[in-house]
Amino acid sequence: MNGHFHPITKAIDKVSRIFTSIGFDVVDGPELESEWYNFDALNVPRDHPSRDMQDTFWIKNETIEGRHLTVSEQKVLAKGLPLGHVLRTHTSGVQVRTIERWVKEGKEFPLAVVVPGKIYRNEATDARHEAQFFQVEGLMIGKDVTLANLKGVLEHFFTKFLEKHVEVRFRSSFFPFTEPSVEVDMQCFKCSGTGDSGDGHCPVCSSSGWIEIMGAGMIHPNVLQNAGLNPREYQGFAFGAGLDRLVMLQTGIDDIRMLYNGDLRVVNQF
């Protein structure tokens, strides 16, 4: 008899199948990340209120030593600045690492990747909040990549992931690493956007017809520059979606903690 894959693994598999088929590579990066990649390079400066937008687990610097440092990290230290470490608060740090690799290896643009991976937030846990969860980052950079391309990619992704046509809409927002920034809503897959999945209500979208699913935008020129690209020549989009939320919405798992306690009563349903 076959065993069972964890529902997050199944989601990552699906994400990877969808994105590799439209030409995006799947990449990864470290979970224990330096503040350069997690914040500085992403246009989230030290001592700036935008650092408060994410609750962060900081690492005791004295408990790490001899870690491999990239050229960019060495430059921070060479400037005499301290280099703190965190449990990454998003997969966005992999943006800068990936661009750096593309530049260094002289790879061809457009660069198009997705990054499914575990991230961490220092917040009290309950049925909807966990200190660790999964995100999938998406990134595409070229000479003429547009916000319309972002919308096209997301429509394609949600439609394939949920196996039915799904519309996507943008709301104006702010993230330090994108400009313009948008919040992305997807049409509710349960009620197809009608707000009614049977008895006049829809439990999945609270009858609004839409589900808030991710943040996205056009990559801020400072981020491109920090990663070694000239923003006069290159532009692109990035997005970051919570995988757990997608899995929970789709399967009906009502408590995020059930994904990480190793309980086979959950896993064996998949």
């Binding site: 916000l147 391309n149 990619v153 943008f170």
Partner: peptide, 19 residues
């Protein structure tokens, strides 16, 4: 209005690779 932006799926002419 962000709603006036119409989605366009970029054609990359390649298959992506996993890490």
């Amino acid at each position: 209005g962000l709603s006036s932006i119409k989605g366009v799926l970029p054609k990359l002419q390649r298959r992506g690779l996993p890490h």
